[in-house]
Computed example of a mutant assay.
Amino acid sequence: MVKIRLRRMGAKKNPYYRIVVADSLSPRDGRCIEEIGAYDPLAEPVVLKVNAERAQYWIKNGAQPTDTVKALLKKAGAV
Rank of each mutant, 00 (worst) to 15 (best):
N61R: 13
S24T: 09
T66C: 09
A78I: 07
E34M: 06
K60V: 05
G62R: 04
M1V: 12
M9S: 06
W58G: 03
A76M: 04
Y39W: 11
R8K: 15
T68Q: 10
D29M: 04
A11G: 14
T66L: 02
K75A: 12
K74M: 11
K3A: 13
K3H: 15
V47M: 00
Q64F: 09
A43P: 02
P45N: 11
P45T: 09
G62M: 14
L72S: 05
T66V: 07
A78T: 00
S26Q: 15
L73C: 01
Y16C: 10
A52T: 08
V20T: 03
P15G: 08
A76W: 05
E53K: 10
G10Y: 10
W58C: 01
V47Q: 12
A76V: 06
I19S: 01
A11W: 11
K3E: 14
R54T: 13
W58A: 02
R8L: 10
V2Y: 15
E34Y: 05
A55D: 00
G77H: 11
G77E: 06
L72N: 01
A43Y: 01
P15T: 02
K74P: 03
G62C: 07
T66H: 11
K49L: 08
K12E: 13
Y39F: 14
L48Y: 01
Y17F: 15
A78F: 06
R5E: 02
Q56V: 13
Y39E: 07
A38M: 12
R5Q: 03
G62F: 15
R31S: 10
D67W: 10
T66P: 11
N61W: 09
G62V: 06
V2A: 08
D67I: 15
P41Y: 07
D67T: 15
M9L: 15
K13D: 12
N51R: 08
M1N: 12
A71D: 10
M1Q: 13
S26W: 08
L42G: 04
L42E: 06
R31E: 14
R5V: 01
P41S: 05
K70M: 09
